[in-house]
């Protein structure tokens, strides 16, 4: 399969459950080494590169999972985590002491990311006290805060109510406007139609079709795509 996600473009990956959307995103996020084929970044096979170089590649990517998976900490600390681990150990300790002494103030990219998802008022609230929708919005802000080049979203709104879904979708659009390339796996056709610039259809034998959103939904070139959209393709 072949899929490219240019800067600023939102690509929806649609397909039935269990077809491999999550596996594809995990491969792109370098969780696992592919059993066959290659994953290239800037023309370099990431699995031939050194661990340090692969870490640099990974740090260009943000990922949001189906479940929020927040850390046992408050909203601010969750949102800052990506920035935190990019700092030197000395800087991390210095900031910890500043936190302990209450000396930190001012805005940070993490706070700006929380503003994007409308949770800037809940900075000091513990993650456990958030609703499912709020937790997922924090997870999105956490991935956005360190300004990655790419965002991988694995069905981020499948468990959310319409209001929280709308907030996340708006944040996805804003990420695209900022020049971040977004790949979002979803089984929600309407969502793909609402937010994606392009759509990739993945079935049992890989990505069968990639095209402009309008084209995929109104005039797909592969009959299986039409059947899947019409709900006739059962897996």
């Amino acid at each position: 399969m072949s899929l490219d996600v240019p800067p600023g473009e939102i690509v929806a990956i649609i397909g039935p459950s269990g077809v491999g959307k999550t596996t594809l995103l995990r491969l792109l996020a370098m969780f696992e080494r592919p059993l066959g084929g290659s994953l290239e970044y800037g023309g370099t096979d990431v699995w031939d590169a050194s661990e340090q170089r692969r870490l640099e590649y990974r740090r260009d990517i943000g990922m949001v999972f189906q479940e929020a998976s927040l850390f046992d900490a408050n909203v601010r600390r969750n949102a800052e985590y990506g920035l935190h681990i990019r700092r030197s150990w000395r800087d991390r300790l210095r900031r910890e002491f500043a936190d302990l002494l209450g000396l930190r103030n001012g805005t940070s990219p993490a706070m700006e990311a929380l503003e994007v998802v409308g949770l800037e008022e809940k900075l000091e609230q513990h993650a456990e006290s958030l609703s499912g929708g709020e937790a997922q919005r924090v997870a999105f802000a956490r991935a956005l805060a360190y300004e990655p080049d790419f965002l991988l979203l694995d069905e981020p709104t499948s468990d959310l109510d319409p209001r929280n879904t709308a907030v996340i979708e708006e944040a996805v659009r804003e990420a695209g406007d900022r020049g971040i390339g977004v790949a979002i796996a979803t089984h929600d056709m309407n969502q793909a139609e609402r937010i994606a610039d392009r759509v990739a259809v993945i079935l049992g034998d890989g990505i069968i079709e990639v095209g402009e959103t309008e084209t995929i939904f109104e005039d797909p070139s592969d009959q299986r795509t039409q059947k899947f959209i019409d709900g006739e393709l059962i897996y």
């Binding site: 969780f31 998976s69 985590y81 681990i85 990019r86 997870a139 956490r142």
Partner: peptide
């Protein structure tokens, strides 16, 4: 998932 989140953010 929590460990995955830390890894996915470049940990």
């Amino acid at each position: 998932q929590v460990r995955d989140a830390a890894f996915a953010m470049g940990g």
